[in-house]
Design a protein around this nucleic acid. Structure first.
Lengths: 341, 341
DNA sequence: TACCGGAATGTTACCGGCAACATCGTCGGG
DNA sequence: CCCGACGATGTTGCCGGTAACATTCCGGTA
């Protein structure tokens, strides 16, 4: 289970390589930086020495002199949740592809002091940039009141499309349209926590879609992205449910809602419909399988990194490709039994 | 959504601080390192200058001279899954508490070339140690064939207790004992992928417990930790189910199994029982809520970091505290309807 | 044959810390 | 009154790279 490599010898430096190849260290640097004007014979000797000694450049030293590091920090939270997680994964990939290493700083999004502390730790390492992925108001505030000497990119952490896009592609619309087509009129939104930028955006999208489709919102209950909060949201409703369809802020919340509805004697989807957002891998295996909106989190992560790198390099940021959330219809939604056909 | 801090000024160094305080840079270093023999007046001036300039030590430069860095890399995978995730979270905390920063290297556990590449990237930064958390055979092999110059700690990534511990605390035992008490005799294990050390351990624990309790194993199907694989495992079984209880390798797998059983007309728990492992936050909200084994992943992560730090500091590693997986009984398990009472 | 210029390579200083060693000043003892 | 010792602080060199500048070695030309 455990394994130690004693191997006390210090790693080889360019000086070691230079000595082994019988050249000066500058020649080694030149080779490493792809400088063309090196005699083939010399080049071979150096290359061989590098291989021989297993030389690996010390990136610390490098970034000390160049003044620019190749690492970026990502502030995130609760990596247990699927969304943030996937975003992180995408960001990680994109960063790696660009030759950067991503430091993940997990923070307690509700404790300003802890946020401060985490940011402070990160700032000690010289970073090329900072990616704020967890966008609660607390984090936003902490980021805004900190003086970073490096570019910072603040992502909302949840899907966000330009507000001028067509309704059909705007957030929750496809989901509500689907419900409307099934004859549902009265709907309740079990939202994310109000301190989250993404949750608020989603709630607004919900209101807009409901209005657009001529439906009636019978309530907006703030949860906390958890299954528990979905469960409790349903339990908090009066005996005679005010709606026939429930739009949860994410799949986990929907899971809890389904259980609560079952326990209160409602069958999903025969009596009521439930939808989620995210399309986590598990959503297809809920009982019943969940109708949801597929979000391409990895793309969001990649995009965030690209934006940040553009800031770092001082080039215009690449445009956000239009992300169209895809409606995934499964078995948690059905015709409204009370609908006048 | 975006925010840039132009702020081109380079960060303050000890030299800047020294100049501002009218002392030499060595005095600043001394203060920073907690050296006692500094005149109070001088100390105040320096402290003030540090505050004034917002000085933060450049850890790159520091580790360049001291030769020891304060960062460790964690090799992990699929951070989407709850277990590895929580482990990472615990590791992150422990590392931070010890003043280390944890670099998370996500790797494709099945592509040896990608594993190599990721490890190589990590090695360029000078690391104090490496934590291998994703323990597939491929990763294990890659780690073993790489020459790290730093300590490496290889964790199995899943619960593991000393083999000499009492059966009652050994892995899956409590779960199977619970099933036995409910009158179940024939049981099937939906395991994790065979390339995973943790999955194999768990499978062995299953076999041992079944034997110990006088039950009969009617099969061991390898899944891949996913809900899909749990679903398909059930579908692969003959029409007349060979068992009345199904022990899944994790909660996700159990979720898929429950759906498949439902679709095949079996009610859980009235007809058959299903159990998971992990106790993810969602498990309590499955329909029906899942009987499972609670694993303290965060503790595993913390422990792994502590082991690694002990290796780094050359001190004897702290003992593993006995981790007793806790049986969480919910509604996915019930009496065996076929049992002769 | 002396000279010029560019290609190939070497030398040097610096990045921001740390630590060994050097220096300065002051106080107490002989 | 001088000197030693010690406390407080300054100077220097080094860690492993990078880059500006310097030098060497050619061949080609006048």
């Amino acid at each position: 289970m455990t394994e130690t490599q004693p191997s006390v010898e210090r790693p080889a430096t360019i000086y070691d390589v230079a000595r082994a190849a019988g050249v000066s260290h500058a020649t080694v640097t030149r080779l490493l930086k792809g400088y063309a004007g090196i005699r083939p014979e010399t080049r071979d000797r150096v290359t061989e020495a590098i291989r021989e000694l297993g030389y690996r450049p010390n990136l610390n030293a490098r970034s000390l002199t160049t003044g620019r590091s190749h690492r970026i920090a990502a502030l995130t939270h609760e990596i247990t949740q699927v969304g943030p997680n996937r975003i992180l994964e995408g960001a990680n990939m994109a960063a790696r592809d660009a030759g950067y290493l991503l430091d993940v700083i997990t923070l307690d999004v509700h404790d300003p002091a802890a946020i401060r502390e985490s940011i402070d730790l990160a700032l000690q390492f010289d970073l090329a940039g900072v990616l704020a992925l967890a966008s609660t108001d607390e984090v936003t505030k902490a980021v805004e009141t900190t003086t970073f000497r490096v570019p910072v990119y603040l992502a909302t952490g949840h899907d966000r499309v330009p507000s001028d896009s067509t309704p059909a592609f705007n957030g929750l619309f496809p989901l509500l349209q689907h419900l409307a087509e099934l004859g549902h009129r009265d709907v309740v939104h079990i939202a994310g926590p109000s301190g989250w930028v993404g949750a608020r955006n989603r709630a607004r999208e919900y209101e807009a879609a409901v209005a657009e489709l001529g439906m009636r919102s019978q309530g907006l209950i703030h949860g906390d992205w958890s299954s528990r909060s979905g469960y409790q949201a349903i339990l908090s409703l009066p005996d005679d449910l005010p709606a026939t369809a429930f739009v949860a802020a994410n799949d986990q919340t929907a899971l809890g809602a389904i259980l609560a509805l079952n326990e209160r004697g409602y069958r999903v989807p025969d009596d009521v419909s439930v939808t989620g957002v995210d399309d986590t891998p598990e959503a297809a295996y809920f009982s019943p399988p969940l109708t949801t909106l597929r979000i391409d989190f990895a793309a969001q992560g990649r995009h965030a990194v690209q934006q940040l790198l553009a800031l770092i390099d001082g080039v215009p940021p690449p445009p956000m490709p239009p992300r169209i959330p895809e409606l995934i219809v499964r078995r948690s939604t059905g015709n409204n039994p009370r609908a006048v056909q």
